[in-house]
Simulated scan of single mutants.
Amino acid sequence: MEMEAPADQASGKHIVLVHGACVGGWAWFKVATRLRDAGHRVSAPDLAASGVDPRPLREVPTFRDYTKPLLDLLECLPPGEKVVLVGHSLGGVNIALACELFPEKVAAAVFLSAFMPDHRSSPAYVLEKFVEGGTLDWMDTEFKPQDPEGKLPTAMQFGPLVTRAKFLQLCSPEQDLTLGRSLMRVGSMFVEDLRVQPPYTEARYGSVRRVFIVLKDDNAIVEGFQRWMVQNYPVEEVKEIDGADHMALFSTPAELAHCLADIAVKYTA
């Protein structure tokens, strides 16, 4: 499936792709390439202690610290420029925080099988509901405290079994799985910090138009929980991608890029 570039390259939209836990901006390489080839401007920042960001996790004590590269990107946008924010997995909470702080700079927030906070509960609520629901068998995922006092967020590292069975089960084992495993880093869900944060507000975060993309074959954040989040906090539009595992960024990049390009054109017209 090929994407056609806009006749006027200036008509391309600025799409900001935000990765999930334990990966980095590199995870978007297939999607970013297709969007750029179609004439769109794409940013895929590494969040703190992710990708090629040199900091270890212990130097990122709060979720806002973790999100700072994204917040810096938005703060530096030219006056009047609006972007389409796309958050995958835990990246949904990052883009929700960005919408809370910079609603005037976001044309639409796209949650790609992503944790989507509401404006009634703490940002940790959807994460806690996910863990309580037991829909994910964490298998060989390792959770470890970073300090004896418990002041730092719990570290999380995905093992090879959970990566293959729950995140990339429809991806190429020779290419995508090998690449993903080699570039993954220790991360965190930052639940301890998010639990004590106030809810994002209806006036700011709630003012940004939201789209949710359901990944039908996601074994990590399963379809039922994705739809529960939409029911919990209704959105402007729901889209679906069939045959996409949790890492649709790898397994269905052409379909995902088309979906994001359509959203970008629709919500920035």
Rank of each mutant, 00 (worst) to 15 (best):
E2L: 11
L17G: 07
H19E: 11
W26N: 00
K30T: 08
V31R: 10
A32Q: 09
R36T: 09
D37I: 06
R41C: 02
R41W: 01
S43A: 10
A44W: 03
A44G: 00
P45W: 02
A49M: 10
S50F: 04
G51N: 04
R64L: 13
K68F: 05
K68Y: 06
P69V: 01
L70R: 09
D72M: 05
L73R: 09
E75K: 13
H88T: 08
G91D: 08
A96G: 04
C99D: 00
E100S: 02
F102C: 07
P103F: 02
V106S: 02
A108D: 00
D118R: 00
E128Y: 02
E132W: 02
L136V: 14
E142L: 14
K144F: 12
L152G: 03
P153T: 06
A155F: 05
P160Y: 02
T163S: 14
K166W: 02
P173W: 05
R181E: 06
R181H: 04
S182P: 07
M189Y: 10
V191Q: 10
R195L: 13
Q197E: 15
P198M: 06
Y205K: 01
S207M: 04
R210M: 05
R210E: 00
F212C: 03
D217W: 05
D217P: 06
A220M: 15
I221F: 09
I221H: 06
V235Q: 01
E236W: 00
E237W: 04
D242F: 08
G243H: 12
D245C: 15
L249S: 11
L249C: 09
F250T: 03
F250C: 13
S251T: 09
S251C: 14
P253G: 08
H258Y: 13
H258C: 14
C259T: 15
A261C: 09
A261F: 02
I263F: 07
A264M: 05
T268A: 04
A269S: 14
A269L: 11
